[in-house]
Amino acid sequence: MSEKSSTEGLQPPRTLDGQLCFALYSANLAMGKVYRQLLAKLDLTYPQYLVMLVLWERDGVTVSELGDRLFLDSATLTPLLKRLQAAGLVARNRSTSDERQVIVTLTDEGRALQAKAADVPVDLFCAMSCDIETLGSLKQQLEMLRGNLADSTK
């Protein structure tokens, strides 16, 4: 945790609307609604979309690399990957150099889905109705907050 002296005398808000966590939670719910609509045409859930984004950036990553990148543990990631594999979008194979590792690769269908998903970020940007500078600043602040919170639990 950060130094207590910097928070001395601070009176944290005690109402629901005064809570930062509620603002984050409710914004996440609203964003999830928009993503559900946008991803329905791709037949993807939001977590599946995130996996596909990682694989479209770099195909052939290990399950542990995916988990690290998405902040997900293997118990959450494995069923998600099984569903993507059943949908024909990814393949999972044991590494030839280290049998303990599972490598996730895109199928031809998974690669083709990238073109179909190309408008998702643009459509989301339009739904947010904010200028690019505001969104960039907000993203940077949230990443800093995420890092600070992660550091506080070490």
Score class of each variant (00 low, 15 high):
8 E>G: 05
125 F>S: 11
68 D>M: 07
63 V>K: 10
66 L>Y: 07
14 R>G: 11
152 S>Q: 12
59 D>R: 00
149 L>R: 14
121 P>I: 04
85 Q>L: 08
107 T>L: 05
76 T>Q: 08
22 F>D: 14
110 G>E: 05
13 P>H: 13
55 L>W: 05
18 G>M: 00
136 G>T: 03
144 M>W: 10
110 G>H: 01
60 G>T: 03
11 Q>D: 10
14 R>Q: 12
22 F>C: 08
112 A>R: 02
114 Q>V: 11
110 G>Q: 02
83 R>I: 10
136 G>D: 12
23 A>D: 12
32 G>T: 04
27 A>Y: 05
32 G>K: 00
145 L>S: 11
96 T>D: 15
41 K>S: 14
109 E>Y: 06
89 L>R: 01
30 A>F: 06
61 V>M: 09
30 A>H: 04
28 N>F: 12
69 R>M: 15
17 D>Y: 05
112 A>P: 09
68 D>E: 10
90 V>E: 06
138 L>T: 04
39 L>E: 15
104 V>S: 00
58 R>G: 15
129 S>N: 10
79 P>G: 06
88 G>C: 00
20 L>G: 07
131 D>T: 01
2 S>K: 03
30 A>T: 06
63 V>Y: 08
38 L>T: 06
11 Q>S: 15
122 V>L: 12
24 L>W: 09
25 Y>I: 10
91 A>D: 09
132 I>Q: 14
2 S>T: 11
60 G>L: 01
131 D>N: 08
79 P>D: 07
123 D>W: 04
97 S>K: 01
98 D>P: 04
61 V>W: 09
153 T>Q: 15
30 A>I: 03
31 M>F: 10
94 R>A: 13
142 L>W: 11
129 S>A: 13
114 Q>P: 04
125 F>C: 14
43 D>F: 08
74 S>F: 04
16 L>P: 11
130 C>F: 14
23 A>V: 00
51 V>K: 00
64 S>T: 05
121 P>C: 10
83 R>P: 09
136 G>N: 09
84 L>T: 11
13 P>Y: 11
94 R>S: 15
72 L>V: 11
58 R>Q: 12
147 G>S: 14
22 F>V: 03
102 V>M: 00
50 L>I: 06
94 R>W: 07
115 A>Y: 06
131 D>I: 00
88 G>T: 00
62 T>L: 09
128 M>W: 05
1 M>P: 13
119 D>H: 01
150 A>W: 12
114 Q>A: 15
51 V>F: 03
135 L>H: 12
123 D>F: 10
55 L>F: 07
42 L>H: 01
17 D>E: 14
149 L>H: 13
63 V>W: 07
87 A>Y: 02
90 V>P: 01
72 L>Y: 07
87 A>H: 02
55 L>A: 03
104 V>N: 03
60 G>Y: 04
